[in-house]
């Protein structure tokens, strides 16, 4: 396998990259300001942290709606359809194969940006974690509107806080995983330039391709 040639393919469109980094920025900013509001540390000052948090939080809600719109009009949502095929080989790769220098069982390709493990993770993230975080954030933000119904704030805050911790944990693993490419920074540069390195000989399996991708 040493003689396999590495080529670059254009994997992430400009819009996808823009959205990825914008969302990354917003989430990191929300985590930092959120933890300050939580009382974990002080950095911006409580009042500014609240203002920044609410501003970015609300902006993110609106932008996320655009993202979902894009996802469905372009059919890109199919990239998130979970599959168990090769899921275990991917898990086994990260658990063992990677230490033995074995190749990744599912290389990236234009039709399939995410491997089965990523699909599952990102689906969980985009369909569960982030919406729950947004929804609890919105409830938190608008609490005064429905406080009259005697709904306590505490559970909302607890869910919001727990999800924040899970997001931090996701970020840690996510950033670490970017270093598992052909070189330490090849995945990151892929998300910056759009060009991912893959082996020339990699063939994209039929099941990885969305049926009617345009």
């Amino acid at each position: 396998m040493d003689d396999k040639k590495i080529i670059k393919i254009y994997l992430y469109t400009r819009f996808e990259r823009f959205w990825h980094w914008l969302q990354a920025f917003m989430i990191v900013a929300l985590i930092i300001t959120g933890l300050e509001i939580h009382g974990t540390f002080s950095l911006l000052g409580f009042q500014r942290a609240v203002n920044v948090h609410n501003f970015i939080g609300l902006s993110w809600l609106v932008l996320f709606a655009f993202f979902v719109f894009w996802l469905f009009t372009t059919g890109e949502w199919k990239q998130y359809i979970p599959t168990t095929k090769k899921l275990f080989s991917v898990v086994i790769y990260y658990g063992f194969g990677i230490f033995q220098g074995k190749p990744h069982p599912v290389e990236k390709s234009p039709g399939a940006k995410h491997n089965p493990l990523q699909r599952l993770t990102y689906l969980g993230l985009s369909a569960l974690l982030l919406p729950v975080q947004m929804f609890s954030g919105l409830l938190y933000y608008t609490w005064n509107l429905w406080a009259g119904f005697m709904i306590p704030l505490a559970p909302v805050a607890w869910i919001h806080t727990l999800m924040a911790f899970m997001l931090i944990s996701f970020l840690l693993v996510h950033v670490y995983m970017t270093t598992t490419g052909h070189s330490l920074f090849s995945h990151i540069s892929g998300m910056i330039t759009g060009w991912e390195e893959i082996y020339e000989t990699t063939t994209v399996e039929e099941w990885e391709l969305p049926a009617k991708r345009k």
Binding site: F18, N51, N54, F55, S59, V62
Partner: peptide
């Protein structure tokens, strides 16, 4: 998207 971002920005409390 940028327009949306700015729009939200101008009406948000921050």
């Amino acid at each position: 998207m940028l327009t949306a971002f700015l729009l939200v920005g101008s009406s948000a409390p921050a």
